[in-house]
Write a protein that binds this DNA or RNA. Structure first.
Lengths: 196, 196
DNA sequence: CTACTCATTGAGTATATACTCATTATAATT
DNA sequence: AATTATAATGAGTATATACTCAATGAGTAG
């Protein structure tokens, strides 16, 4: 009773989503749908048999990516009680998706609204998990609320990513700058403590 | 001896550049050239009589913008010996171009290479001027080099701008968040001093 | 006044790319 | 085996938009 067919269909859908991830990671979100079809090894028309529009393909892709990264963030928070561990684990997680994540933050403006929402939710999840650890920093005791510390951290990381051409044009950026980023943020947030 | 004609030509060129600034500020850099022509009150073809391509128009516009903002940054540095004054003046300067600047940083990736360079130079100018003041902060005495403090500041400001939809969807963002941004950064950079 | 130069015009061209749909191939059902 | 349902195809259509170029007309020179 028609199980092979359904499997095939879902499999094709996944092939398209996986191809879209790779193509967008490499060329950015303005890559033509034809390139995705080619990468997936399916016909161009097939994309529109699975997704009503390019926008819905992007939405589905971000939904999937958001779920995956969200789970990763959740694990971070469970396994890292201290700030340094959390920061390093965060960068390691992002590093696994560096290219895709980079295009995501630099081209957020051209994503369909639904996809923007999905990404905004992801930020909220991260903010929540970071909040617990950040509230114990010296900075938080001195009038900088945890969410501002989170914004400072995200700002710093995103700033480096967005200026990748400047900081690390060819090699992946996050592995290379992890120490510097973590050290900077720790020092700023913890000066009070470190001076014992 | 043909002075009126030349004046007219330069005037049309400026009308196009000024219109491009307004259109890009409002709609972003993917606005069609036809919209710029309409805003400038000239024919579509006129744009290509003055600029060989859309890319060269954008380059010329950024050149002009860069010169103007660069001069503003230079003034900042001269008139603000203390960090708080410098930060506030910086935000006030950016606030004058908030919409355009926002599109600039969010769509940097789709600018022509020459325009990217122009913008990168602008960042360098800012970094230089900030360096002098930043090196006197407590953070700089504790192992965070001035350029990292600069990156942290820029990251924070850009992060707020890029998430404008979240922080201040309708009203201008910078005036509204100046106090919070300045307070956060001052506290992080100066904790050592403020604790006397 | 006449001839000429050149800035300006806007309809037309070229291209890229999202999306359609009649056709084909293949699995499910009888 | 024959019939039916549906997943997949890819050539074709629609649209957006950068850029062209022959025509226009206003300023300039003799």
């Amino acid at each position: 009773m028609e199980t092979t067919r359904l499997q095939q269909k879902q499999q094709t859908r996944q092939k398209i989503l996986a191809a879209a991830y790779r193509v967008y990671a490499q060329k950015g979100f303005s890559a033509p749908t034809a390139a995705i079809a080619k990468e997936a090894g399916v016909s161009h028309g097939s994309i529109f048999a699975h997704f009503a529009s390019q926008a819905q393909l992007v939405e589905a892709l971000l939904e999937q990516f958001g779920t995956q990264l969200g789970a990763g963030l959740h694990d971070l928070a469970e396994n890292n009680a201290d700030l340094q561990g959390l920061l390093r684990a965060h960068l390691a997680l992002l590093a696994r998706h560096e290219q895709f994540y980079l295009h995501l933050i630099t081209e957020k403006g051209q994503l369909p609204p639904q996809a923007k929402l999905t990404f905004a939710n992801l930020q909220s999840v991260a903010a929540y998990h970071f909040g617990r650890v950040l509230q114990h920093t010296a900075a938080a005791q001195n009038g900088v609320p945890p969410y501002m510390l989170f914004n400072t951290w995200m700002g710093l990381v995103h700033y480096y990513l967005m200026n990748k051409e400047l900081f690390s044009p060819d090699a992946p950026l996050l592995p290379r700058y992890t120490d510097e980023l973590v050290h900077t943020f720790l020092t700023l947030a913890q000066i009070g403590e470190e001076q014992k």
